[in-house]
Amino acid sequence: MDIIIMLIITLMFLKVIIKGKFDKRDFMLWILTFVLVVVLFKLHATSNLNLNL
């Protein structure tokens, strides 16, 4: 999953640099990457502790 995230970040960056602009599609790609990183965080940071919030 880390590789997928880094691939998207790299492609998004290269797209922005080559096109020389950051349009709505790139913005959507940024949001998608953001959501994927949050999901990855959730997968790694799930606790078994019976925390009382």
């Binding site: 880094m6 970040i9 922005v16 940024w30 953001f34 990183v37 990855l40 965080f41 790694h44």
Partner: peptide, 23 residues
């Protein structure tokens, strides 16, 4: 893994100033 996640968020944060610079 958590170190890598922090790096991803740093890179995503960098897209803000990059957006300003590109525009």
């Amino acid at each position: 893994p958590l170190c890598m996640i922090q790096r991803y968020f740093m890179m995503l944060a960098c897209f803000g100033p990059l957006y300003v610079i590109i525009n």
